[in-house]
């Protein structure tokens, strides 16, 4: 349940940047690494609460997943990994091993958590412009 503190950090980090935005922020697009253990549901509801009374109030938090990618320490492979998955039970875990030679790997992406972009509605948009 660290989603609330994460949402608070997210809002605090964004507020100085949104002060200069001309228009209403309607969407906040967050990139979340596949290995992060953060509930989307809790993050979204925490964001709604934490952003209340700020220029971000009413904005929708949209979470986009960043898949794990690795670099193989043995054969030099760079790219995605295989998964152990069971869709029926919300179970999908990247296997941190080289899909080519099964050696140890270094994770390149999959642990990030950052705001990528904002969607903004300006008065011109409201007028259909």
């Amino acid at each position: 349940m660290h989603e609330y503190s994460v949402a608070a950090e997210l809002v605090n980090a964004l507020l100085p940047q949104v002060a200069a935005v001309d228009g209403q922020i309607v969407g906040v697009i967050l990139k979340k690494g596949e290995m992060r253990i953060l509930s989307d549901h809790s993050l979204i509801s925490a964001f709604e609460m934490v952003s209340e009374g700020t220029p971000l109030q009413g904005a929708r938090l949209i979470i986009e997943l960043v898949p794990v990618s690795v670099s193989c320490l043995t054969c030099g492979y760079q790219g995605a990994v295989e998964h152990v998955s069971d869709d029926a039970f919300h179970f999908s875990v990247p296997i941190l091993t080289c899909p080519k030679c099964q050696s140890e790997v270094e994770m390149k992406t999959g642990r990030e958590l950052y705001v990528d972009r904002l969607t903004v509605r300006t008065p011109m948009d409201t007028d259909g412009g």
Partner: peptide, 9 residues
């Protein structure tokens, strides 16, 4: 509506 890229630390 339009998108604004954010300095996403």
């Amino acid at each position: 509506m339009h998108n604004i890229n954010v300095n996403g630390e």
